[in-house]
Design a binder for these strands. Structure first.
Length: 497
RNA sequence: GACCCCAUCGUCUAAUGGUCAGGACACAAGACUUUCAAUCUUGAAAUGAGGGUUCGAUUCCCUCUGGGGUCACCA
């Protein structure tokens, strides 16, 4: 038997990083066993449906490299894959439940329900939520409501006693007292199903073998198990995935509950935010796979192909976890370091252009090898490269261009020689420039070491306390611009005499 | 509050009924060094508490504590 799994988001907004991780695990498992992965849109809550949400899911998922074999866009044998388009199917089976006395009509209005809840709470039965009064309506009472044309919902008749076992792949059997489980609404008064009914019907008819979902569904799982039983359908394997908590550990990961980490980083939640912040999809997905699951062999960095080979849902750690954002930064940095010079330049381009910079790829590619070890995210490059793209006068003093081993006169001498050297350097490449400048430095410092001079020269060329190294910067800036900066530095030095 | 889930360094995690409880991030120190990084070396750092079972428990059981989830005509 082949496995079939589904990722079933509600189009109520963006793709949350927690959902993305669930999707990732779902997808990895399907791929590991060579089964199918399905995308299903759970849009039965009309009020919460957000325009464009499905589009964002698709693009976020696609960016992460997650694909699906069946879904609203690609079709498939058991569609439609959008729940509102399956309304008739739900109604058909809801009726079946009604006729076979597994469900009953509830005529209570929202106001009445609120009152009932209050009373139950007073009697310390708050967890029931509903007192089942419509379950026990006489034929007469029912008739009266029907003729009055009262609206109704359908509720499932939970067994009044006994226990229900929910088998969970990563936690084992979980048992619930049936008497503590309420008669949930399964069909709303507008004729659309609630999640509970839709889940059971869809996952049955779509042939889903493993139901992956968050732990928040454990408490209603006994309802689902009883629904499967009522229909006489086989139970899928339930896999309740652990939640991702805020970095502080307080509550589910959400911007509303926590906006910043302890180290002052912004808490990112939406997948698109990670892309905008300059994280690479390979790194993000690698990072996500390391939360709640581990590759083994003490390896932190791996490709999805490698992970899929070893992945199993049963190996997932049941404990909830906090988002280790710092580790993502480190991992992303590792991925950046592994990129080729031009590859990184191309990846950086859109981010630099976003900042208003005009990017010359070959020039940028001189810099990317030395840049790659300095940035964790693609956006980190923007401030580091400002000197390359923003032409503004040096804001430094003559003192900044001197050092203990390089007094004013020596600096003047060295910079003059450097100017001559740069203007004639042939070929204009890393090796020549490096060798030439080292020679000049060694000849002019009091300790005969190039270091002090090279440091001042880098400052003169970039005007930045922190920047990529000197030789590469000269290459990227080009002859012209480099000479201009040297002239500027010489002027500053002259002014000090 | 009721029900349910969970519990290893600060964080993400590995491990077995029996080695000094392993790795990674972060942190600290050192090396290297043209800034900042990167890299290398070293270091500090954990089985929540109390009971059992056992020759022996981090591992199995119970209680407590702590954290989380659910208690909608939302998913």
């Amino acid at each position: 038997m082949t496995v079939r799994l589904r990722f079933a988001p509600s189009p109520t907004g963006y793709l949350h990083i927690g959902s993305a991780r669930s999707a990732l695990f779902t997808w990895m498992y399907a791929r590991h066993y060579g089964g199918q992965c399905i995308l299903r849109i759970e849009d039965t809550d009309l009020k919460r449906t957000v325009e464009g949400a499905v589009e964002e899911f698709r693009s976020s998922l696609g960016w992460m490299g997650i694909d699906w074999d069946e879904g609203p866009d690609v079709g498939g044998p058991v569609g439609p894959y959008v729940q509102t388009q399956r309304a008739e199917l739900y109604q058909e089976w809801a009726n079946w439940l009604l006729e076979n006395e597994f469900a009953y009509k509830c005529y209570c209005t929202p106001d009445e329900l609120a009152e009932i809840r209050l009373t139950l709470q007073k009697n310390k039965q708050g967890q029931l939520g509903y007192d089942r009064r419509c379950r026990y309506l006489t034929a007469d009472e029912r008739e009266r409501r029907e003729t009055a044309g009262k609206g109704y919902t359908l509720r499932f008749k939970m067994p009044l006693d006994g226990t229900t076992i929910v088998p969970d792949l990563i936690r084992g059997d979980i048992s619930f007292e049936n008497s503590l489980v309420t008669d949930h609404v399964i069909l709303k008064s507008n004729g659309l199903p609630t999640y509970h009914l839709a889940h059971v019907i869809d996952d049955h008819f779509m042939g889903i073998t493993h139901v992956t979902r968050g732990v928040e569904w454990i408490s209603t799982a006994p309802l689902h198990v009883n629904l499967f039983e009522a229909f006489g359908w086989d139970l899928p394997v339930y896999v309740h995935l652990p939640l991702i908590l805020n970095p502080s550990g307080k509550g589910k990961l959400s911007k509303r509950t926590q906006a910043f980490t302890d180290s002052g980083q912004q808490v990112l939640v939406r997948v698109e935010e990670f892309r905008d912040a300059g994280y690479l999809p390979e790194a993000l997905v690698n990072f996500l796979a390391n939360i709640g699951w581990s590759f083994g062999d003490d390896r932190e960095k791996f490709t999805m192909d490698e992970a899929i080979e070893r992945f199993d849902l049963a190996d997932i750690n049941p404990a909830e976890t906090k988002m280790p954002y710092e580790k993502l930064d480190w991992l992303n940095g590792q991925y950046i370091q592994d990129m080729g010079a031009m590859e990184l330049a191309e990846a950086l381009k859109p981010y630099l252009e976003e900042a208003g910079y005009e990017v010359d790829l070959p020039a940028l590619a001189y810099l990317t090898p030395s840049l790659s070890v300095r940035i964790k995210k693609l956006t980190d490059a923007t401030p580091l490269l400002a000197y390359l793209y923003v032409d503004k006068p040096l804001e430094i003093s003559a003192e900044d261009l001197t050092a203990k081993q390089l007094d004013l006169a020596a600096a003047e001498r060295a910079f003059t020689q450097a100017r001559e050297f740069i203007s004639a350097a042939e070929p204009f490449d890393l090796e020549t420039i490096g060798a030439g400048l080292i020679k000049i430095g060694e000849a002019n410092t009091s300790n005969g070491k190039a270091g002090p001079f090279l440091g001042r020269m880098r400052l003169a060329m970039t005007g930045q306390k922190v920047s990529p190294p000197l030789y590469e910067s000269i290459l990227a800036m080009g002859h012209q611009r480099s000479l201009e900066k040297l002239d500027e530095a010489l002027t500053i030095l002259d002014g000090a005499f």
